[in-house]
Design a protein around this nucleic acid. Structure first.
Lengths: 194, 194
DNA sequence: CTTTTGTTTGACAAAATTGTTAAACATAAT
DNA sequence: ATTATGTTTAACAATTTTGTCAAACAAAAG
């Protein structure tokens, strides 16, 4: 008989992603995840054999999701300017949903000593060349293209990682902070693409 | 008899800070810390009573250190422009030493549901006013001053948090990456203070 | 309906992590 | 030198977290 697909496996993974990437509870246990998913903890072992395998799978899928987003933008048949615009849009939408995803990837990346695959490096290199070309056309400020990329991702990701601090610091509630983050899409574009 | 101050208490704290803030091993155990410090794990309990107390103390001191840095800049008798320059200098020097410190503070901040004390909020408010004044003088680009601050901290902190990813992605070694980060001081100033 | 197969559960075991205690040790005071 | 006091250590206990297993359960196949 084939698998029955009760959706439990996916539910566990989605719940783990929510806890790690959205809520930022990086120290969550399998019990925490099972409770949040409303299932017996044993099912984590039934579907994933071990805690480590679940966590690694979650990290792998996170990397894949992030790559897919960047991929879709980098390889799009668009002018550079539109690529940047779209990148900001799709990346920030995801970052608003999963603010801690990159943080999780970074810590897992360090822990497991993984490497970025060569194909991804190549895609980035291609985009760096596009950035350089745009600079030479005088459309964006001249600098090391790597700095351009680092700036862009920093401006998009960091304020979402530090949401809890900023909300407390600036005394704003959730909806006000969401509004600020939405404003950032345009603001970031204006900053890097003056 | 008074305390003998063998330096062990400080050694444990410093080692914990190195592991958390410099190495980014957010899941380190007391055993990991004791081993790295070259002391018996029991001493963690002797000096701090419990793991949680040590971790909280480390987080509290991290907050205090960060506040002290910002404080020294905010309250300095300097032109706004020089304040920004100095902020970038001191913050990035610290961030290069402890790239994951803010990350630790954020996760502990969430876990313990702390609040930013009113005095700090007030200092930030004062600085926001200074930012606004500078904008009205036309010296920096007009925007919500909170965005100005978020941009500044994002540009400074994020590339250091993602060091391991960027090094792999751009195929650079430690010294080259350090060079890139040093370059950023001027670059960030130029970005926010055009 | 009965059997078969995959899923879920609770009880239990194992492992990892943290906390406690008494004794050994080292240094300062007497 | 002896005592007193603070420090360090190893053995042990408690707790937390993870992993295993057999039995109960549910749905599809015969």
């Amino acid at each position: 008989m084939a698998q029955r697909d009760t959706g439990t496996e996916q539910l566990i993974k989605d719940t783990a992603k929510r806890i790690f990437f959205s809520e930022g509870r990086l120290h969550a246990t399998t019990q925490d995840i099972a409770d949040a998913a409303g299932v017996n903890r044993t099912l984590v072992n039934y579907y994933f054999r071990s805690r480590d395998i679940l966590f690694e799978q979650v990290a792998d899928e996170a990397r894949a999701e992030m790559s897919a987003v960047l991929e879709s933008v980098f390889s799009a048949k668009l002018e550079f300017k539109e690529k940047v615009q779209r990148l900001i849009n799709v990346f920030m939408d995801q970052a608003m949903k999963f603010p801690y995803r990159e943080m999780y990837v970074v810590t897992e990346f360090k822990r497991t000593e993984k490497n970025v695959p060569d194909e991804k490096k190549h895609r980035i290199k291609q985009f760096l060349i596009e950035i350089k070309a745009e600079m030479e056309l005088g459309r964006i400020k001249k600098m090391d293209p790597r700095h351009f990329l680092m700036n862009l991702f920093a401006l998009m990701a960091y304020p979402l990682i530090t949401t809890c601090l900023n909300k407390s610091l600036y005394s704003v509630n959730d909806s006000e902070y969401l509004k600020l983050m939405k404003e950032r899409k345009q603001l970031i574009f204006d900053m890097v693409y003056q």
